[in-house]
Design a protein around this nucleic acid. Structure first.
Length: 551
RNA sequence: GCGCCAGUAGCUCAGUUGGAUAGAGCAUCGGCCUUCUAAGCCGAGGGUCUGGGGUUCGAAUCCCUACUGGCGUGCCA
């Protein structure tokens, strides 16, 4: 709001000075605090239009605007920047807004745009792994933030429960089952699933179905086993996600799509538009006409569809359900696959730009300075559950959110477990707990603040540089959240939270909140830190981590 | 070969889309507890933003190029 005010002040000022201005000028928070609270390049970008030296234009603007009561200082610097320092009163009024606004930082920025965020979408063939955990933290946090700033975003999990992998799972499970019943199964096949969970499932299968299962004909038997495994593993995955505070709004099963005939529907649309042809006994998608590097097979020569068909069909349903923007969160090994999917979206008559793909890079776990090897084959994957049990939900979520998605993530297990300042999660939560403890102390001394107490006159007590910095930081929350939503980069929130916590810790060190000197000062400061507490609670909630009153 | 992503302090990473003296955390070194939680704070050292060109008032950021690393390039999913 303050930024908008400066923009309008600048525009009317330029009009008053009879100067042209380039609409592309910006008003930004400078990195260097010596350059004021907000800074504009309007004189620089408008110098050509007026055939005048940017510095001279800047001087004129500053001279005019410095008279306004809202600005403590308006200065010209460098080649022609105009730097504004805000008056304390504006900041105090903003502080009141922070405390009185229920969801501070929320907005209608997203204009209710319908967004579908698809993430994890792991094969239902085993426990969720570390990469899934990263995707979970990323997708869930992004979704929370987007909804907070006015988007209509939902989380969706696509269950690949119809492919080859699921058949192998059923076969693996049957072997383990037979093993339990005392059969000699020989060497366990290399391509089968080796994880311990398969053995556990086999025991469960034995206790629910028992040996009568073997009397079924092979096809029925495997189908029964498959259904059982899918159900169990699904609930296993849901369980892990729930522990991680990730709740999907929607689950879509590939098997269900197939049985509803969506695949045929998608294929017939493609054929209708003339994008399919037959060759070498297979049906091809002419995706190279639509930007893909070559054509792709849709129906294999054996008559079965490739994985591309259900994927196209699935994305078709996303559009049919009315979503305007589709965000797919995928692993790095899928990037070759995006052009063909976009080609399909195009062929189906939708806008390919509606599909945005975020690639999450891999996660490397480190312990004792050494990388923890993960091998699927040996069944030694470190699972999401193990990670949560080991370092806790808060640390895991924070560490995952802390990095931008396109960067490889080195996850230091020891650091995440440390309960000290080295660990950024505890650092942030500690700030929150400290505030709680101060407020409690004040209450014990019968000092409480009520809305009637607080007015601009009282808030004048807040004039220390650290106090003003805290208010400015809190004001910027909305802009940070909008930026995150727009760029799909929740890692800025972890950064923001850490910075706010730092400012509070510094303030705490330098100034006593509950001070004997002045009751008014105490009240004003309590008001300030309760605002910080509120903002921290908001960011914690958006990141899905807890806000501890005591530590 | 072609395509995508990345290369910033000893390490892990930010850098608000082209702004002013490139920033954090960890690690290292030196200080601060009779005072609301020291799970904290203050200070110091540490940089050819991978190299080279270009675009302009201005480049870590945009373009070209070379190098290095990761991944992709199936009638696998």
């Amino acid at each position: 709001m303050i930024k908008e005010k400066i923009i309008s002040d600048l525009k009317s000022c330029m009009k008053f000075l009879k100067l042209e201005y380039n609409e592309n000028f910006t008003v930004e928070t400078p990195k260097n605090t010596d350059h004021g609270d907000l800074s504009t390049n309007i004189a620089l970008v408008s110098s050509k239009l007026n055939r005048a030296n940017p510095r001279i234009i800047a001087e004129k603007i500053a001279e005019k605007l410095v008279k306004k009561r809202d600005y403590k200082k308006v200065e010209v610097a460098g080649p022609g920047f105009v730097n504004f320092t805000l008056a304390n009163s504006i900041l105090h009024a903003a502080l009141q807004t922070i405390v009185s606004t229920p969801n501070y930082g929320a907005s209608d920025f997203g204009k209710k745009e319908k967004i579908l965020i698809e993430f994890i979408s792991a094969n239902p063939t085993g426990p969720l792994n570390i990469v899934s955990a990263r995707a979970a933290a990323y997708g869930d946090t992004l979704c929370r933030i987007m909804n907070y700033v006015g988007f209509h975003a939902i989380r969706e999990f696509y269950i690949n429960d119809a492919g080859n992998q699921v058949d192998i799972l059923a076969e693996s499970l049957e072997l383990r089952f037979r093993e339990i019943l005392g059969e000699n199964i020989g060497e366990f096949p290399l391509e089968a699933y080796h994880g311990e969970y398969v053995k556990e499932l086999a025991h469960l299968l034995n206790s629910t179905e028992g040996s009568k299962l073997l009397h079924f004909p092979e096809k029925d038997r495997l189908e029964r086993i498959k259904k059982f495994a899918l159900k169990e593993i699904h609930s296993m995955q849901v369980n892990s996600l729930t522990k991680f505070d990730v709740n999907f709004d929607s689950w879509v099963s590939e098997r269900a799509l197939r049985s509803q005939g969506i695949l045929e529907e998608a294929l017939s649309y493609l054929a209708e538009k003339g994008y399919t042809y037959e060759s070498e006994e297979a049906v091809w998608f002419a995706s190279s006409q639509l930007g893909d590097e070559k054509d792709r097979v849709l129906i294999k020569s054996d008559g079965n569809p490739t994985y591309l068909v259900p994927d196209i069909a699935y994305h078709l349903t996303k559009f049919q359900r009315g979503h305007q923007t589709l965000i797919d969160v995928l692993g790095p090994d899928h990037h070759g696959y995006v052009p063909r999917l976009k080609a399909a979206i195009n062929a189906l008559g939708y806008d390919e730009n509606a599909l945005e793909v975020v690639f999450l890079q891999q996660v490397n776990l480190f312990e004792d300075g050494e990388q923890v090897k993960m091998s699927k084959r040996a069944g030694k994957i470190v699972t999401m559950d193990e990670l949560i049990d080991d370092v806790g939900k808060d640390a895991a979520r924070f560490f995952f959110i802390n990095r931008k998605p396109s960067a490889h993530l080195n996850f230091d297990l020891e650091l995440a477990k440390k309960k000290s300042s080295e660990n950024p999660v505890f650092y942030c939560q500690y700030a929150y707990a400290r505030i709680s403890s101060i407020i409690e102390k004040a209450e014990n001394e019968n000092i409480t603040i009520t809305t009637e107490d607080i007015n601009l006159k009282l808030l004048r007590k807040l004039n220390k540089p650290n106090e003003l910095l805290l208010i400015k930081k809190m004001i910027s929350l909305g802009a940070v959240l909008n930026l995150i939503a727009e760029k799909r980069e929740p890692h800025h929130l972890a950064e923001y939270t850490h910075e706010l916590a730092t400012m509070f810790h510094k303030y705490y060190q330098k100034h006593k909140v509950v001070t004997k000197k002045s009751r008014d000062t105490t009240k004003a400061r309590l008001y300030l830190i309760s605002a910080v507490k509120k903002i921290l609670a908001i960011t914690f909630d958006l990141m899905g981590i807890s806000a501890p009153e005591k530590m």
